[in-house]
């Protein structure tokens, strides 16, 4: 079986190497991507979407399908970890508990956490909201927002975090973020444009088509942010407690 795997891998590698010969050279100024696509994006990006950050425009508008399925991949990761690790209460009793001894020791970490966490959350929302102007966007902001909850779970304990943010709510957010992304695309479809053609939002939001694309980018960034932060929390809940949801690290 192992030998078969090796053979298949070797064949795949050979095919890829053969295909790589035909790729244009790195940073070749005469390759199709450099002669047509990049200049077009750079010249028309701001005019079409009123968004100065070209990276955001390419990520969330020109190749929005790709980003949507990236969000779906993250969503699938959370589901798989949930399926593999999460235990039902009946299975739980058979397991040996490993409870860390921590009562009365967390004073310093709690003091730092209560000051840092709110600032961190507003910073995360700023990163999501200002993806149009500075580096940032849904993925980065979502990671920081999720990390703030992980800090809460580390400095207090996992049970405290779960009491504030129930597992059901987290899973609702996991699905809701992807739904928001796809829903924006579906609304555009319903308005008679392409799927994820944000200009279709112009009639609903009451703005020009260019501004509608800018707002559409913001909406899908928010969707990605919700997905990423809730997926991080879901992963942490399951991984830190081994699926029991009682004691974290």
């Amino acid at each position: 079986m192992k030998r078969l795997t090796l053979v298949i891998l070797a064949i795949c590698a050979l095919i890829m190497l053969a295909a790589a010969v035909d790729l244009p050279n790195w940073a070749d100024p005469s390759s199709p991507a450099s002669t047509h696509l990049s200049p077009d994006f750079l010249e028309q990006g701001y005019g079409e979407t009123a968004t100065p950050n070209i990276v955001t425009v390419v990520l969330a508008d020109y190749r929005s399908y790709d980003t949507m399925f990236e969000a779906v991949v993250v969503f699938a990761a959370a589901l798989i970890v949930l399926v593999v690790l999460r235990r039902t209460p009946r299975q739980r009793s058979k397991m040996v508990q490993h409870r860390p001894v921590r009562e009365g020791r967390d004073t310093v970490l709690r003091g730092a956490a209560q000051l840092i966490i709110p600032v961190m959350q507003i910073f995360a929302l700023y990163v999501v909201g200002h993806g149009h102007y500075s580096p940032g966007g849904g993925f980065q902001g979502g990671v920081i927002f999720g990390a703030s909850f992980i800090l809460l779970a580390l400095c207090y304990n996992l049970q405290f975090t779960i009491d504030r943010f129930k597992e059901q709510a987290v899973l609702f957010c996991v699905a809701g973020g992807v739904l928001l992304y796809a829903g924006v695309g579906a609304i555009c479809l319903a308005m008679g444009w392409n799927f994820l053609g944000y200009a279709g939002l112009a009639g609903i939001l009451g703005v020009s088509e260019v501004m509608a694309r800018s707002h559409g980018i913001l909406l899908v960034e928010v969707g990605v942010g919700i997905t990423v932060f809730s997926v991080m929390m879901s992963l942490y809940y399951d991984l830190a407690s081994g699926g029991d949801l009682d004691e974290g690290l």
Partner: peptide, 16 residues
């Protein structure tokens, strides 16, 4: 400010 808040806390966590 963040460094003044976080660095002693991280130090404390590590030595603990």
């Amino acid at each position: 400010f963040f460094v003044f808040l976080a660095s002693p806390t991280a130090t404390h966590a590590i030595i603990d």
